[in-house]
Design a protein around this nucleic acid. Structure first.
Lengths: 132, 132
DNA sequence: AGAGCTACGTGATGTTATTACATCCGTCAA
DNA sequence: TTGACGGATGTAATAACATCACGTAGCTCT
């Protein structure tokens, strides 16, 4: 009944690969990694990623065209997430901020915009890489 | 001396096309529109877009892989911008919010992250399309 | 058994972005 | 004047990312 046991084989393979990775992976690098497990076509990866995103277990990084496992292993029911992506080492930090979410909510209310999905991505250098 | 007169022919063609458009345009739809003006290859579009982005005259929408002219015709020296993108009509609303910028600044300071570029994009439906 | 649903396999294709290399042209110093 | 240099351009090829179209397999419910 736990969500992890509900995953299909392909979904589990993709999710495990993302969890082991130290940085975001593109769909095609996932495909390459999973060839030994029987993956042959991009669609196998994209279909698994789509489900994992629906489950909140994987996030897509729009500015990278790549994917990361969610940083919150046991609670995928979260609100707005922001991502800080280090362009030097590839590390991604996932965080949320109530004030930001609230401000965006105010803006949406005022403008009548009905938000479905919000992307916040910060590109730059993490503390370790910045002081190298 | 005005920035508009500093544009090269290709940059001006791309910028004008984006200004006339009612919605974001992909690099390849720009290319198609500009074939009569002598454009033959994607790189001509990408090179112009790169410069226009440096000038702050054009923004890239990461979640769409597309580009829009900046909404502030005379002042391209702005801070963090957020974009609300209507998935129904394609309209993009550009706005900024001091509080959000400030919160992200606090987060960066606390975590030691050095931000180079921040993307905020809200996908959903605008007021007009939501009440259709 | 058969309908309906979800996942899967596969090939072809569509879309977005970059690499590599050659050329053209204006500026500026020797 | 010449030639070195930088910035912009032209072109072909390729790489990287994503989807379409079609068929199959397993499962559940009746």
């Amino acid at each position: 009944m736990a969500e992890s046991t509900e995953l299909t084989k392909n979904q589990r393979l993709v999710f495990d690969a993302l969890n082991k990775a130290q940085a975001p992976l593109s769909a095609y690098s996932l495909l390459d990694q999973l060839r030994d497990d029987g993956f042959r076509a991009p669609l196998q990866v994209y279909r698994a990623l789509e489900k994992l995103q629906q489950f909140g277990m994987v996030h897509r990084l729009e500015s990278l065209n790549a994917f990361v496992a969610c940083a919150h292993p046991h609670d995928h029911r979260h609100g707005l997430m922001a991502f800080a992506i280090c362009d030097a080492c590839g590390q991604v930090t996932e965080f949320s901020d109530e004030a930001i979410e609230s401000r965006l909510g105010v803006w949406a209310r005022d403008s009548g915009f009905h938000a479905e999905k919000t992307t916040i991505e910060i590109r730059g250098n993490c503390a370790a890489c910045h002081t190298h």
